[in-house]
Amino acid sequence: MKRIRLGAIALGSVAALGLGLAAPSIAAPEAGTTVPTFQEFKASTLYDVDKQYIVNGDEPVSTTGDLRAYYDRMVHGSEEAMENGLVVNTVGGVQDKWSLSQVGNLTYCVSTKFGSRYTDVVNAMAAGAALWEGASNRINYVHVSSQDGSCTTRNNNVLFSVEPVQTTQYIARAFFPSTSKRSRNVLVDDSIWTAGSWTPANIMGHELGHTLGFRHEHTRPEAGTCFEDNNWVPLTPYDSASIMHYPQCNGTSNNLSMTSTDRQGAAAAYPPA
């Protein structure tokens, strides 16, 4: 974890093997130091090719106003941290997840612009989706292949798109259920095929965890590093081996595989029928 200190706030960028590289997160203030201005924080934040800010490694923030709200929460928000959970994102204190009817029909397309890797991405998405579908029969991802030729966020025939990106800043990144349609996509870089023990299926499983509303497990205090914010609620006990836990943030999994605790959390968020 590379950390750059700007006064009271640590702007951290996840290490090179991370799902995200240069997305700052803000750590707790230190006594006797100066908080960086919002402009300093904004300048250090990755502005994605998809015209979104990326925080916490692989989580998009759509507008400058949203980035300011994120900054304000980090500087002025609660210093209390929850102590339990595979954690689900919250917006305004409300759990950020799909309705039970919508989570059973999570439609997506896979862009044909992946070229020779198109089938590989289709298979990785299916395998990543199966991890969560196996945890709760409420969850169902549906690949609408007829839309793959026009697979962008502007395609209203699917809930989200899976598109290629060329970047050195992350392997893949996703979105939360509360994300607006114009920003609802999963972007995948070619480095997904050369990520060592992190299989494409598990990487896509991690990103699809975000699409279900799940946060990085390492934002919890037990991780001891890589704190992001307190906008989450617990679903299970802390799991250092979680698929949602970066290994380089004191995680104990070397392959980003799904755990039984992950499955319990998914079933808690989306109770099986």
Rank of each mutant, 00 (worst) to 15 (best):
N250S: 12
V121G: 04
D120E: 14
S197M: 09
V87Q: 04
S136V: 10
S197E: 09
T199G: 02
G149F: 03
L212I: 09
K42G: 10
N56R: 12
E40S: 14
P237H: 09
V88R: 01
T112V: 13
A43W: 09
R215F: 06
H216W: 01
G7A: 09
A266Q: 00
G128S: 05
D50S: 14
D229F: 10
A126Q: 13
D262M: 02
I243R: 02
F227L: 08
D239M: 04
P164N: 11
T225N: 07
T34F: 06
A69K: 15
G85W: 03
H206G: 01
S111R: 00
Y70W: 14
W198I: 00
L6N: 04
Y47A: 10
S25I: 14
H245A: 11
K42S: 10
Y141N: 03
L67M: 10
I243Q: 02
T152C: 12
S78D: 13
L86K: 01
A172K: 04
S180E: 12
T211G: 02
A69E: 14
D96K: 04
E133C: 03
Y170I: 09
D262E: 06
P237I: 07
G251R: 00
V87N: 09
S44V: 11
A15Q: 13
M74V: 09
V162G: 06
R68F: 15
N254T: 13
Y70L: 09
A27V: 11
G32P: 11
E163I: 15
V233Q: 08
H76T: 02
C151G: 08
N56C: 13
S78L: 06
P272V: 12
Q166A: 15
G57D: 06
I9L: 15
D58F: 11
P29D: 12
L159D: 01
C226W: 01
T119S: 15
Y270E: 02
L235G: 13
V35F: 00
T168Y: 12
E79I: 07
S44Q: 14
K113I: 01
T34H: 08
H206L: 03
R117C: 04
V122R: 14
F114W: 05
N254W: 00
R138C: 08
Q166S: 15
G209T: 03
L131C: 03
F175K: 02
